[in-house]
């Protein structure tokens, strides 16, 4: 969740709750523990209350996951849930620390405390990333698409480029002249080629559809072979697999790619230059998809720690409750 200055007022109540809660918790703990031979632990009256509150909040925090899965539940907006998740999550820190009596306890409670620490730290890390990455993505990935559709869109781009190269060079697309066989549904049916390319006009950048009339094959055959070889040997691989492929390694960097296409343009006649520009643009898109994948990984990777350990924490928390009540 993005916490911007403009939206601070919507968080203010939660922040006040967090600060007031922390001060109250510390005050109650100190008042109770004053003059006692040892620090009040989890079984002391304030410790027990803190433990109950903390575990209740943790359960609520964990409930965000099913809440996200079933968005149709009419139990508060997603924003409200997220705010509560963040700020109540912070409130569990003083609750659990004072509940523990500043002691790690036995193995079970130590593991619980470590899990709790990791969950809190990973949540903080995720919150930090959410303040930065979406903004960076907006700036550096104007061709952003739905993450799970990147492979599909990349194949689509490849087929568009393949049509364009075939139209330019007169190459026949068959099993030996393609890197990715296309399904029947994707077969070209019109005389026009539509390519989704990225354009920049002033401050506005975005993906636009370019409609291009297939060019005639008036280009010398040697030059056409260069275009075909370049597409099948380098550009096509890069369009399909991006930075993961070895064949299109020289296209991973924008500078190297610019040099590559400048060189390609020199070897081709004027009539094929527009095709080269389009291929260059599609490669730029592919680089942005790669960047989007990396950012998506950062943006969601922390959840691979946060969510599973939260589940383990909740499970062991119930064990801790049972044991603590038996031996308190």
């Amino acid at each position: 969740m993005l916490i911007r200055r403009q939206e601070l007022s919507s968080h203010l109540g939660w922040i006040v709750l967090l600060v007031a809660g922390t001060v109250t918790i510390a005050g109650v703990y100190c008042a109770y523990g004053m003059g006692r031979p040892r620090l009040p632990g989890g079984s002391s009256p304030p410790g027990m209350v803190f433990g109950i509150l903390g575990s209740a909040i943790m359960l609520f925090e964990f409930f965000l996951w099913p809440r996200k899965k079933v968005r149709t539940w009419r139990i508060g907006s997603a924003k409200l849930w997220m705010r509560a998740h963040i700020w109540l999550g912070f409130l569990t820190v003083p609750l659990i620390v004072f509940h523990s009596g500043f002691s790690m306890g036995g193995q079970l409670s130590s593991v619980l405390m470590v899990l709790f620490g990791i969950v809190i730290a990973s949540g903080l890390f995720g919150l930090f990333l959410q303040q930065i990455l979406p903004r960076l993505m907006l700036e550096h990935v104007p061709a952003e698409t739905i993450y799970s559709q990147i492979d599909h869109v990349s194949r689509q781009n490849y087929w568009d480029a393949e049509d364009l190269v075939a139209a330019t060079s007169g190459m026949v697309i068959d099993a030996s002249h393609t890197l990715q066989a296309r399904p029947v549904a994707e077969a070209r049916t019109s005389d026009y080629i539509v390519v989704g390319a990225q354009r920049t006009e002033g401050n506005v950048r975005g993906k636009v559809l370019q409609t291009q009339v297939p060019t005639s094959t008036s280009v010398p055959s040697e030059a056409l072979n260069v275009l075909n070889d370049s597409f099948l040997g380098t550009v096509g691989h890069f369009l399909l697999h991006g930075r993961r492929c070895r064949e299109g390694a020289e296209l991973k960097s924008p500078l190297a790619a610019a040099a590559y296409f400048d060189n390609l343009r020199l070897m081709l006649p004027q009539s094929a230059h527009e095709t080269v520009e389009t291929l260059k643009s599609l490669c730029e898109q592919r680089r942005q998809f790669d960047l989007q994948c990396r950012m998506h990984g950062w943006l969601h990777g922390w959840l691979l720690v946060h969510v599973p350990l939260s589940a383990a924490l909740i499970g062991l928390m119930f064990v801790h409750i049972l044991v603590a009540l038996k031996y308190w």
Partner: peptide, 11 residues
């Protein structure tokens, strides 16, 4: 079992 042993406990 289920009876408090610490005299500062809620139990």
């Amino acid at each position: 079992g289920l009876h408090a042993i610490r005299d500062d406990s809620l139990g």
